[in-house]
Design a protein around this nucleic acid. Structure first.
Ligand code: FES
Ligand code: FES
Lengths: 144, 144
DNA sequence: TATAAATAGGATAATTTTATCCGAATAAAA
DNA sequence: TTTTATTCGGATAAAATTATCCTATTTATA
């Protein structure tokens, strides 16, 4: 469904989010350990997220990654997915036609329509805050 | 969403299906042309589909691919997707945890649940016949 | 029986995705 | 000012996916 990069990116963002709530900045090392991802690859993904204004980075000793508290509830999953995987998953044609077009639909267009719309609206209506709170309270998990 | 192999496989199966309805066997060349896919790669995919009993092949002159008429309505999209991509798309964890587990859910588990179930039931309840008939009647398209 | 038209399948290549390595830049603290 | 802990970014490398090529095998027909 999502690329590995996107999976790591979502998990990393959640981990950064709930630490930022407590005013804690987290390092690449801590993130990779927490979400069980390869460190160097995760670094690249975090750089992408910084460029796309999902997270902020602070260089140097005692640096790391963080998200402005006020923004945590404003960042939607769709922003992360879009930054890392683009919008093909909910905008492109499910069978790889040049584009998804009502007037020139592929055989599964109608069947997929509602699923893709549900996916899109879920991604656009889910914010980092709710996901982070669930992890913090032990309702959901980032690894294993 | 699906791999290229799976996209080609679904489209090829639909094309074979509606030709089989008319008692026509189709060649690799004809399939690749009709669904706009690379011929040799498509050949590999068709071999997989033959091994998984989705389609039948006939070697030699005047050979090609076909599906038993009586089976066309029995073959579900899920069978094709499973043969080519496995079941990760609707059974695996959306964030790549080892497995999707109610008792150890990832942060998006609940959000994804209904989408993945809808996807699964759609794939399990859509058969080749309906898809093939739509293409045949010009309601949907296999390329461009 | 020879020929031609197909699929089967092994080997290989190209591309994309995933992953690693290392030096440069930055900034806090000693 | 030096050391240390970081992110940044370029260059590779490894693995997976996508794609191609070539030969063997099969089978209908001339
Ligand atoms: S045309 Fe294929 S999903 Fe819309
Ligand atoms: S645990 Fe991740 S989708 Fe169920």
């Amino acid at each position: 469904m999502f690329s590995k990069a996107c999976e790591y990116g979502i998990k990393a963002s959640i981990f950064i989010a709930f630490n930022s709530y407590e005013g804690k900045r987290v390092s690449l090392k801590a993130i990779a350990k927490e979400i069980n991802s390869p460190e160097a690859f995760t670094a690249k993904i975090l750089q992408d997220l910084v460029k796309n204004d999902v997270i902020n980075s602070v260089k140097g000793a005692y640096g790391g990654f963080e998200i402005e508290k006020l923004n945590i509830s404003k960042i939607k999953l769709s922003k992360i997915v879009n930054a890392l995987d683009g919008d093909a998953i909910y905008s492109g044609c499910g069978l790889g036609l040049h584009k998804c077009d009502e007037n020139h639909p592929c055989p599964v267009h109608d069947k997929f329509k509602s699923i893709r719309e549900e996916l899109k609206s879920m991604l656009e209506n889910t914010n980092l805050e709710e996901l982070a709170l669930d992890v913090k309270s032990g309702i959901s998990f980032l690894k294993v």
